[in-house]
């Protein structure tokens, strides 16, 4: 299974691999969420990063990866980078730099002040957007003019944390994070990445109304019902679903 005959899946991970660029794509890590929670009185022990490292090692073994692309929200805190987050970001970058040559970080709406951490690493770049060949990488929290750009045929974004909610005949509900893909109204091919963070809750794209969608890109530039979904679960694997509008009708 591939998306747009090009982007490959990597095991059961919420990630994509672009063999043309030898690039691994992930999005929405929300590092440091635990220390932020501890700060508000919820003493959750840190476990995200070590889980992520396990997953990344697995993917690094499976594919030949030269560059890692993160489509935004590397860290969680909106305002100043807290001590806990900074350390986690450093640990994350250093872990990857052991195995890959380059890391590209798209700046998400949670990534203020990230530059002070990142600038110490020459092979790590932080930008509002990246374009490699005909493919653009954005976060998705605002409308990037680049989507309609002449040379850009593919756009990959994060931000939304898409997920599907499924219900059985007895009423049991199951939430599964998913990739969304389809075309914008302007004809650009668009992929929305699921969150890589296991702590991030997803938005139920098959249940909620269009006005509850977070990303202005999805709200305004796309007919959401026309997007198709592929569910991904670390334990259970990949599931190809039809267009969202058909799923809504079926429920």
């Amino acid at each position: 299974m591939k998306i747009f005959e090009r982007f490959e899946f990597v095991g059961n991970h919420p990630a994509l691999y672009d063999p043309e660029q030898k690039m691994l794509i992930i999005s929405d890590l929300h590092l440091g969420l635990e220390s932020l929670m501890a700060d508000s009185g919820m003493f959750m022990p840190r476990f995200q990063l070590s889980e992520m490292k396990d997953d990344l090692s697995d993917m690094l073994e499976k594919k030949d990866i030269e560059r890692v692309m993160v489509c935004g929200d590397i860290k969680h805190e909106f305002s100043e980078t807290s001590h806990g987050e900074r350390k986690e970001v450093e640990e994350f970058l250093e872990f990857l730099l052991d195995s890959v040559e380059n890391i590209s970080l798209v700046k998400g709406n949670h990534d203020n002040y990230l530059i002070y951490t990142v600038r110490r690493y020459p092979n790590v770049s932080l930008e509002e957007e990246f374009v490699f060949e005909n493919t653009a990488f954005i976060h998705g929290h605002d409308k990037r003019e680049i989507i309609g750009g002449l040379d850009v045929k593919y756009v990959v974004m994060g931000h939304e944390h898409p997920a599907l909610t499924l219900t059985d005949e007895i009423g049991v509900k199951e939430k599964i994070r998913c990739f969304l893909y389809g075309e914008t109204r302007g004809g650009t091919k668009l992929i929305v990445m699921p969150a890589f963070s296991s702590l991030a809750t997803g938005s139920n794209v098959n249940m909620i109304g269009d006005n509850q969608i977070l990303s202005p890109v999805l709200r305004e530039m796309v007919d959401l019902g026309e997007m198709e979904a592929i569910g991904v679960d670390r334990e259970a694997g990949l599931f190809k679903f039809p267009k969202l509008k058909e799923m809504k009708e079926a429920v």
Partner: peptide, 16 residues
């Protein structure tokens, strides 16, 4: 979980 999701997936596809 895998079986659970398979069943749900099947259910969606069947109703479509």
């Amino acid at each position: 979980k895998k079986r659970r999701l398979q069943q749900l997936h099947h259910r969606v596809m069947k109703s479509i």
